[in-house]
Every structure is written in structure tokens, then in C-alpha cells.
Design a protein around this nucleic acid. Structure first.
Lengths: 338, 338
DNA sequence: ATTGTCGATGTAATCGGTTACATGCATTGC
DNA sequence: GCAATGCATGTAACCGATTACATCGACAAT
């Protein structure tokens, strides 16, 4: 060994074992085709040198990166990190690693820096897009690896998707309220340019239309605690005060609940609230929150699995819709007699 | 162009521009040393072919990966994802990408698969370790890239660290309770093998000792809502019921609060509660939570910056301790006269 | 006129593996 | 005895960039 500080290369192992580099490579990647004697000698040499393959060199030769890039709007948001955990799980099982890019902070503008420079086959073997607000044109370059959209989706971007059944979820939530006798229902939405908000609004309409109803009020929030809290003021200002509220996510529901309680309303006695997502804290809120369960880790896992499938089979246009379910807790109650 | 489906290589651009590959490379990486005429011709050829560099090839040649790996115990935990967001931020500014590995799910055992195979220079230019429960021996291989520990730390692993001031935080929390007149104080800890829990326990002791006091009860939780909730039962069972509780994180504080309220105790009238972390929801809890603010994104950013610094300068043993502060809300009140 | 310097560019080695193809040897069939 | 077959292994091309070194022309100094 010339320079003991340098990491050993395959050449060093080959020399020590008295075989060629090809044989060493074969022992590492496909041991069954090399003779037992040779294999043992090579394994011994590997152990003695402490050799590990240089992943970059292998990747270059094999024309693959060994990793998948997830584009998330906000990495700090637990909603997305739960999905990421599912993605990471599925990838690890395939020996792939997870790269993460926070799209809201990264610069979309310049062609050199920014998101665009990550969207190439030489950086990732595939893309999982969790941000529905991106420009579909970003993914149109020929060098762009296969894409799977998850959770949110981009209008004008074809290709495989995996989504929760947002319409059904919103419908379930509102039907639950209707079943309790509520008729004056408010809807606190996410940003309406968001595809998620749009399909939840559609679900709300589907539940109300058969009765000839519509939401008595609608407020556009931002999926944040603060915007839910702000909705409390809007609600109090309504002439015909709603008796129930459906919020597009649990954070807004919790923010709203805090805001209403601060104003002296009791949940569920004075007003019923339903959220969406079933985040962990929903069960531990002041008044445990009735909500729609959405399996986020499972959604992430499914997205990763779909990506791996599509890497092999060419791009069929697949759409996987995951079921959701209603979790009844204590934030909803029958409409009291007038 | 022989095969229009193939991504163009630097060779193709060179031919189109009528220059050598070296010149193209120089235009891309160090434009100032090539003549204006040539540069423009190359840039035109780049635009026409839609060329983008092959990152794998560049990385192999330059012996760097262009990415940093974060080891997190649980990716779905918002506590860590906020730190990750800070890390991602700092890395992006340097043109590095973020790789994430969930250490609890990955297999630590086998030498081939598992965490070990990620801890090599050919996979990441550096490591940010957020999991204090890992075996220090993992990082002792010569091929292991530079490591910075953040938030938690590993006993027996030297090297740079960035931490919140856990001792001071716990001390502040308890001193706040003492200042309100409380003397019977319970401590709900994280797992005691966790270095974080240990230093918070030390801070608690520092605050109590001058008065000759000790926690009247201590319960070991798991940093989860559920374990906080479980602590409520333990608390009620105490003969000398505490008048105040310090919880090692906000999740346990919120779980505890829910559990106590379900048992008819009022916060803060019957009992005061302090958390740690100042997670977003702390302000929107049923009773807004008094807690210790810890800037998690900033902590992540500092860790990344420290890593980048140590990549250049050799390994000085640096330890950065970030200040924390007390945020007083409504879950704490003066001890009522007996 | 000759030499030296400098800036711009080209040539080719290099990073560290994988793998198509070639080779050599032993076994088998005729 | 000789060709055919097959297994184990070696040789060298290849992945696609970067960059040390060589080259060349123009211009300045002697």
C-alpha cells in the first residue's frame, strides 16, 4: 500500500487477493459466478483492506444515481415529514437513498441555480413531487427523471399520482355533521389555488347539494394554526352564525377551536368542529378532535413504490386513490334543539 | 447528433461550438479565463443542445459528492424536521443537497446494508448526526466523512457539536416555577439514556439545589403525547401531589395537560405546567403553554455551517451552545395560598 | 532577429468502478 | 485424439466529466 491514508481501491484488493479487478467486482456484486476458493480469498482481502466501493464511480458507470428526490413545499411541516418517512422507508428497502428539496425556499427562477438544476437524471433516479404549486414546465425537459405526484398534484402535469381520497373525506365530514342535524355549516378551506382545497370543496358540495344546501360561510385559510385562529373572528362576525365547521386540516381546526373558546363558545355544545388529517395531536386537543384519518406514511410509501414500478415499466398513466375514514371524537355533537 | 434521445454530452457541445471539451468545461466552471468570442459560441451551443453537466461524472472526478447526510431518529417527528429545514437552507446556499436517513428504521446490524454503508466519503461529503443513541464506533472508520453532532450527542464521540442550552433552559423553567412560589415540582423527563434528558435533569437540579429541594416526583416519558398523557395518572397517584410540573418537551406537556383536565384538574389554577421547545402548537393549546423557546431551524442551520467550516479547516473540537429563552403564557400561575 | 512571456486553447490522463469480450483450461462426446 | 462446450477469470473499453500539461500565436523586450 503506497499511501495508507488513502481509501483502498478495488485495484488494491485485487492485488492483495492475487486476482483481477473484475473478479473483485464480481465477488461484490454477483458472488455466485465466482469459484468458492476465489471468493473467500477476495472476501478476506476486502476485510483486511477495509475496502468499500466508491459509490460515485459505480453510479457513473451504471448510469444511475441510487437516490430519489422528494420536492416538498415546506420541510418543517409535520404533514409532509410524515409522508417523507413513508417514502424513506420504501426507498431504503430498495437500497436507494432519499434526497430532499424544500421548494418554497429554493429559487425557481434562474436556470442555473434553483430547482431546475436538480431535475436531471444525473442527480436523481426519480422524483416524488409533493408540491402542487410548481410549474409543470419544470418537468418537461428530456433530462428529467420519472415523476410521481403525491398528495397534491399539478394541473397540466400528466403521469402517475397517488392521492388520498379528498373528496370522499370532505363528504364524510360534512355528512357526519348533517347526520347530527347541522344545517348551517361553515367551510374553512386551504388556499383555493391548491388542488387539495379544490377537491375538498368539491366533496363538501357533493354532501350538501342533495339537500339543496351550500356552506353558509367559507373562509380561505393557509393550513396553519394562525389562519384557523383568525377564522374564529370571521365566524363570530357572521349574521347567521354557523352551528358547525369543517376545516380542511387539523391545524386550522385546532386554531379555530382555540379562537372560539377564547371568545366563550363551547365545543361541541355551541359549535361542532371537524378537521382533516388526523394528526397525532388531534386526539390530545383540549376537546379531542373529530377528523378524517389519512395515512400519510402509507401515502408516501405508495408513492415511492409507484415510482419504482414506473422506473421499470414505461409510463402508464396510473392514479392511486387511498381511502380515508372518519374518526369521531368529542368535537362534534348533535345540534341542540333551538 | 447520432442519437437524439440521448442526453447531450460535453463532447457534443464542443463539436457544435467548434472547440475542445476542455474549453466547454471552462466556460461552465470558470468563464473568466476564456475569450469572449469563444464563450459566446459555447453558450450558444449549450443552449441549442440543452446540455446540462452530468453531476455524477463531475463528482467522481472532483472526489466529492455534493451532498450532506443527516441522520435522524424519526423523520416523521416535527421536532427533527424543523431542524432539517434549517440544515437544508444552509446547504442549498452552498449548492449542496440534503440526504436523509431515518436511523430508527434503518438496520444498524449488518455491515453490508444498514447505516454503515452510508457512512462513507463516496456517499456524502459530511454527516450531521441528530441521533444520540448511535454507536460511536460507527463513525470510526477511516472512510467516514466529517461529522457534526446537533441537538443530541453521542457519548464517546468527539468532534464539533451544536446544542441548545438544555441546562439553562431547564433551570429557567424551574426557576420560573420557584418564583411563582411552587415547591412541590414534578419532572417529566425524556428517556434517561438520552443525553438531552440528562442535561435537562442537571438543569432542574441546579435550580432546586440552592433551596435544598429536589423534584417531588420524576417520571420517565418518551417525548410523546401519549407518554405525557400517561404521566397524568402517575401524578394523581402521588401522595404529596405536585403543584407544578416541568416537562422535557411540549408534546409531553400537552399530553399531560389533556390528561389532567380529563381528571378534573384546572391549569393553571390547580397545577402549573412548563414545557420545552416552543413548538408551534404550544401557543394554541387549550391553555397556551409556558415553555422554553429553542430555535430549531437555527440550530440546524448552525450545524450545517459548522460542518462546512470543518470541511475546510481540520477538526478542531468546537462546541456551539445556542441560547434558549423562557416564554411565559398561561399554563403557569402563582401558587395559591394553602 | 531572437528570446521570453502571456493568454487562449487543445490533448490526454484521470477519477474508480463495471462489464463485454477474450482467453485458457477442463470436461465431454464422437 | 480432437472438436465442442462451459466455467472461471483476465484484459481493456467505457461511463462523462475535470484539469495538468503541452502547444501555439501575438506581442514586448533585448
Amino acid at each position: 500500500m503506497k499511501d495508507p491514508d488513502q481509501a483502498p481501491r478495488i485495484h488494491d484488493v485485487a492485488k492483495l487477493a492475487g486476482v483481477s479487478v473484475a473478479t473483485v467486482s464480481r465477488v461484490l456484486s454477483n458472488p455466485s459466478i465466482v469459484a468458492e476458493r476465489t471468493r473467500l480469498a477476495v472476501e478476506k482481502a476486502v476485510a483486511e483492506t477495509g475496502y468499500t466501493v466508491n459509490v460515485m464511480a459505480r453510479n457513473l458507470r451504471q448510469q444511475q444515481v441510487g437516490g430519489v428526490l422528494a420536492l416538498v413545499p415546506n420541510l418543517a411541516n409535520p404533514f409532509f415529514s410524515a409522508i417523507l418517512a413513508g417514502i424513506a422507508d420504501a426507498l431504503r428497502e430498495e437500497g436507494l437513498s432519499l434526497l430532499v428539496l424544500d421548494t418554497r425556499r429554493a429559487d425557481t427562477g434562474s436556470a442555473t441555480g434553483g430547482i431546475r438544476s436538480y431535475l436531471t437524471r444525473s442527480r436523481a433516479d426519480g422524483l416524488i413531487v409533493l408540491d402542487g404549486s410548481l410549474d409543470p414546465e419544470l418537468f418537461s425537459q428530456p433530462s428529467c427523471p420519472p415523476v410521481v405526484q403525491a398528495c397534491e398534484w399539478i394541473d397540466g402535469l400528466a403521469g402517475p399520482r397517488v392521492l388520498a381520497d379528498n373528496e370522499a373525506g370532505a363528504r364524510l365530514a360534512v355528512e357526519h355533521l348533517l347526520g347530527l342535524g347541522h344545517r348551517r355549516i361553515m367551510h374553512v378551506t386551504g388556499p383555493m389555488e391548491n388542488t387539495l382545497s379544490q377537491s375538498r370543496a368539491a366533496g363538501v358540495a357533493q354532501a350538501l347539494e342533495p339537500l339543496g344546501l351550500a356552506p353558509v360561510a367559507r373562509m380561505e385559510g393557509a393550513f396553519t394554526l394562525a389562519s384557523g385562529h383568525a377564522a374564529a373572528a370571521a365566524l363570530m362576525a357572521e349574521l347567521e352564525r354557523p352551528t358547525a365547521v369543517f376545516c380542511d386540516n387539523d391545524e386550522m381546526a385546532i386554531g379555530l377551536m382555540a379562537g372560539l373558546q377564547a371568545r366563550g363558545l363551547r365545543v361541541p355544545d355551541d359549535i361542532s368542529i371537524v378537521g382533516f388529517d388526523n394528526i397525532e395531536i388531534a386526539a390530545y386537543a383540549n376537546v379531542p378532535l373529530t377528523t378524517i384519518r389519512q395515512k400519510r406514511a402509507h401515502l408516501g410509501r405508495s408513492a415511492a413504490e409507484m415510482l419504482l414500478k414506473h422506473r421499470a415499466a414505461p409510463k402508464l398513466q396510473e392514479e392511486l386513490i387511498l381511502p380515508v375514514e372518519l374518526v369521531i371524537r368529542q368535537s362534534t355533537a348533535p345540534l341542540p334543539p333551538a
